[in-house]
């Protein structure tokens, strides 16, 4: 049952530590959207479009910067830098409801996780792209616009 949504902690919404690996997450992605429609959809409907777009641009900037920091930390073997970048990524992803990216980032920031940092860094890039694509689509066609 590793990596299935039903296995997440009911109170925190987190996956049990050590039970998740990038492969499992990739499988999960087949079933789950990259963004949480409740959070991202709420933002898109609560805010004027220009505000939502500004947030997406900020998020995109954050992703590029933090993914680079994460990769650099992996290359340098800098565990602290790696976890700090993962923490910021998790925060940014949570703010816009990019839940799969947040999950990957949380695995990376957990010092008890035995996931391979290089694989997680690749996964971060992948999930970041997916989240941006879905968020952009949401910005173009926000809930209630029809």
């Amino acid at each position: 049952m590793i990596g299935q949504p039903e296995a997440a902690d009911a109170a925190t919404g987190r996956w049990p530590f050590g039970c998740v690996d990038p492969v499992a997450l990739q499988c999960e992605r087949c079933k789950v959207s990259a963004i949480d429609p409740e959070i991202a959809g709420q933002l898109a409907s609560d805010l004027p479009r220009e505000d939502f777009v500004r947030i997406l641009r900020t998020f995109e900037d954050d992703l590029g910067r933090l993914a680079r920091m994460l990769e650099a930390a992996v290359a340098a073997g800098d565990q602290d830098g790696y976890r700090r970048a993962a923490h910021s990524l998790a925060g940014a992803a949570a703010a816009v409801g990019a839940r799969r990216l947040e999950q990957v980032a949380r695995v990376a920031m957990d010092h008890r996780s035995n996931a391979d940092p290089r694989a997680l860094a690749v996964q971060v890039r992948h999930e970041a792209g997916a989240a941006l694509a879905e968020l952009s689509a949401l910005a173009a066609d926000p809930p209630g616009s029809h």
């Binding site: 933002l43 500004r54 947030i55 900020t58 998020f59 900037d61 954050d62 910021s88 925060g91 940014a92 949570a94 703010a95 816009v96």
Partner: peptide
Amino acid sequence: EDTPTQAEV
């Protein structure tokens, strides 16, 4: 807030 996305939201 140190994460610009969070602050912007």
